[in-house]
């Protein structure tokens, strides 16, 4: 297993190099001259020349790539172009808000998804199963935006059960006052896709021999499903959740934007709106790295939970 982990880590290097090349190519070539973006519409030739010098854009392409590589390795992407805040500090200060929303959301949505999935597998093939699945398909067809707009309007603006938006200073206020509505809406949006996926994991287990054995022993269907099948179906669920952790952290960007939560997702949207390239570049490179590492952790967890799996 150690050998496997080491080999996987080695294999990350070419992929990471590709990510760095892709980001470099996107932001230095496709995006046009960053100096013009930074200087704005009304700028003099001297201003642009000085910005180019400052960013190292007057160097040869391979020197620029080396500068970028040094930034990646030293975790130092300089300052934001719009707020002049160091990029590393932006991410460090926005992370807690994101985690306050995404952490509880992830735990609750996984538990709810698993319970729904097993319950649906229990009644699989009946009209209940079929109509719930059609209902979920319909729910997934309506844009996430509609759920958030309506939820914010009805639950916060009209009924006043939650604050419409905002964020406080202390963790307690944030978690208890400002986070519940975004978490609730995130849960509503995630139930359908999660249940569909987890249900397929459960259905995969139901035809296994051990399930027949358990039934032959005379166990109740509930015990078979919630004890025997659930334990095995949880393995792909956990792998899925762990592998997607970095993506899920970003996935709350719409919630953060609607509710004014100063998290990472909202920061990235702001950076895209303001053409704040250092922030986007740093986010892309490090989130890609985190995704690869969490993918590996997910695969290793799979192996720990299910020793029959041969990792190659």
């Amino acid at each position: 297993m150690t050998a496997y982990a080491v080999r996987r880590l080695w294999q990350m290097i070419p992929t990471m190099a590709g990510v760095i090349l892709l980001v470099f190519f996107l932001f230095n070539w496709v995006g046009g001259d960053p100096a013009y973006v930074l200087a704005g519409l009304f700028s003099s030739q001297e201003q642009i020349a000085s910005i180019r010098r400052e960013l190292g854009l007057d160097e040869a392409l391979h020197v620029q790539l080396l500068i970028f590589l040094r930034q990646v390795l030293s975790f130092d992407f300089g300052n934001s172009w719009t707020t002049s805040e160091p990029v590393s500090r932006i991410f460090a200060t926005r992370l807690p808000a994101s985690l306050t929303v995404v952490g509880p959301l992830l735990i609750i949505e996984t538990i709810v998804g698993v319970v729904f999935a097993v319950a649906l597998a229990w009644v699989r093939g009946t009209w209940v199963d079929r109509s719930v699945m059609v209902l979920f398909t319909m729910g997934m067809s309506v844009s996430i935006l509609v759920f958030i707009i309506l939820g914010q309007y009805l639950l916060a603006y009209r009924l006043g059960w939650f604050p419409v938006q905002g964020w406080g200073e202390s963790f307690g206020t944030n978690a208890l006052v400002y986070a519940p509505l975004p978490i609730l809406l995130g849960l509503i949006v995630s139930i359908a896709p999660n249940t569909r996926l987890f249900r397929s994991f459960v259905i995969d287990e139901i035809d296994q021999d051990y399930v027949r054995t358990a039934r032959a022993k005379g166990l109740s269907e509930a015990r078979v499903l919630f004890v025997h099948v659930l334990r095995n179906a949880l393995i792909p669920v956990i792998t899925f959740v762990v592998s997607n952790l970095p993506g899920l952290l970003l996935g709350a960007f719409l919630l953060e934007r609607f509710f004014g939560i100063p998290g990472i997702g909202r920061e990235i949207i702001l950076a895209v709106e303001r053409s704040d390239f250092p922030v986007i570049k740093a986010a892309t490179v490090y989130v890609a790295l985190a995704t690869m590492i969490f993918n590996l952790i997910g695969d290793l967890l799979y192996r720990v939970a299910d020793p029959r799996i041969q990792l190659r």
């Binding site: 990510v19 996935g251 986010a283 690869m292």
Partner: peptide, 24 residues
Amino acid sequence: NWVYNVFNAIPGILLILAIAAVLD
């Protein structure tokens, strides 16, 4: 496969936003 791995390593929404940022 290398190109696939590179594109797969970046979460979709982030790649979409990064390209949206550079496209003038």
